[in-house]
Design a protein around this nucleic acid. Sequence first.
DNA 1: TTGAAAGCGTTACCAA
DNA 2: TTGGTAACGCTTTCAA
Lengths: 346, 346
Amino acid sequence: MVTLKDVAEKCNVTTATVSNIINGKSKASAETRERVLDTIKELGYQPNVIARGLRGKKTGTIGIIVEDITLFDAPKIIVSIMNYCAETGYHAVIENMRYYMRTEIATSMDEKLKYKKDVADAVAKMRAMRADGLIFLACHARKNIDVLPPDLDFPVVMVYSYIDNPEIPVYVLDDENCSYNAVKYLIDNGHRKIGIIAGANDNLHAQKRIISYQKALFDAGIPFDPELVYADKWSRKCGYDGLKKFVSMGVTAVYCLNDEMAGGAYDYAREAGLEIPKDISVVGHDNREIADYFNPKLTTIDLPLYELGFRAARRIVAMIEGKPPVEGDQTVLQCTFIPRESVKKI
Amino acid sequence: MVTLKDVAEKCNVTTATVSNIINGKSKASAETRERVLDTIKELGYQPNVIARGLRGKKTGTIGIIVEDITLFDAPKIIVSIMNYCAETGYHAVIENMRYYMRTEIATSMDEKLKYKKDVADAVAKMRAMRADGLIFLACHARKNIDVLPPDLDFPVVMVYSYIDNPEIPVYVLDDENCSYNAVKYLIDNGHRKIGIIAGANDNLHAQKRIISYQKALFDAGIPFDPELVYADKWSRKCGYDGLKKFVSMGVTAVYCLNDEMAGGAYDYAREAGLEIPKDISVVGHDNREIADYFNPKLTTIDLPLYELGFRAARRIVAMIEGKPPVEGDQTVLQCTFIPRESVKKI
DNA sequence: TTGAAAGCGTTACCAA
DNA sequence: TTGGTAACGCTTTCAA
């Protein structure tokens, strides 16, 4: 590894001079500058960003801590953040916490503590490498995500979850309006007996969506029937089981809280010889890649993932540079209803 | 930020003593140790891994440079690598090069040069933070990927592409056997006129698969008809256009070189009122999530992504620790044929 | 058992 | 314009 010192020695100047030349603190004579620049090229010297960070203040590095990179929408958000960073002269580095993999293995208290410790380590690492700021990308919303250490002394932005900390701006996706609209769409299409297939209902997303479902029903004068909410796991099987139950109850439409569960509903419909949307209408949520490959194509809700990443990145950069924020402490991005082929007017 | 020095001062010892205690170089008296440990807890001291790396030799960090994290299989490979790292006491950090996003914007020579420079920077950064080793995860295979700087003086493993460098072990996925088997499966099911829908055929994956297709045909005594290979882009539309052409030629089965194109073939079949597999059989490639949601479910080829990550991780760790390698310079992992519902026996 | 000091690669400050 | 030197947070060697 070629260092500043190597270059300096070869040029018979000190490291200070070389450093100055590299960083454009233009006090060097044209002659020295040229000699140094040539040597740098010749030796293939590359500055050590890490050592630079140790000493200096601003590093131009933004840390991204991702709870789980295998979450379907994480890569898009990350890339969107990185694009903004690239445009504004920053560089993003990623730490992945492998949340799912870990909770799959153990849900014990020990594991939770260990997770929290690992997050703290990741934050410390970002701090250690002198990241100018940090974006934390949660894999699902909590009312107050409690994995971050309390004493964050540098700019942090939270994405995809809420956090009780006035210092940390929050960027989340709307769960309410979109769910309301989805159910209203079903109602507007003549459906009155509408089932909702939720993931585990200890989940904030599920809770908000279920409440919005109730509200849409209420506004249309349709009484709420608790039997019409089926909650189990966020899995394809859950969608299958849910629709099976609902069909026997005479439901004409079902709102699945993710596209995977909608896929499970399709599975059951196919098995039971039910035609979508003729016999049963289905709406999904997330507009994952799969949705557009369903047959018939799934009517669902699109998530503004790139926008989310962009906003979070713009905010962290603003915080770093001391610029006034464009948004408030908590910004909720709206999702888009995508009507396709899985709902019938009755 | 609490430093070693802070702890040392508070305990009236030197940083050396604290450092020794932390790193288990147990020369400290029980009394001092306890005092230091308590202070560490009290102050919430966390070691600065970066500074540690600057001085020390082994950091326990493994760098992953990913050409594009939005490539459908990248997250799985990454997580698999990270799992192995976690088990063996290493920590992986990710640099994403945003390959697709960039080539989308510009394919100019300038952009290529810039890409190469950015990769070199990323490598330098890994080096600077004293990563013990580096895994480079390409987003598609090249005969000799030429983006890495030549003077790598630390262990490197290449995943998903070949590279002409005896120092760098290569881990790739098989393109030949699986394609051969897929076509043979079609032949064994009575198909004789089999179309192949390829992505751009300047691509190594496409080339190998097309050759295997020819070989399978040859072995079955079926003459190769160049009209039966349709190559355009790796897109859904390509699958649509390809099948459209083939149907008019009396093809009974089609092998699509990725699942997305198979989806396009489904699109056309549906539009043309053709039933899969009754009227036309389809085989895909990649076994992406979408494949299992197709109706009928897509017969395709599964990629051993976790295995790939595991092997690469195991290799880099072996290289770092000077252990003998389990595999040779170039290991090709076999893919699994997944028969589902999209092929009919005729 | 503990401490002093050098070194890792860089930048910043002040003096020459 | 250039150089010397301290500092960043840590580990390591050698001496006390």
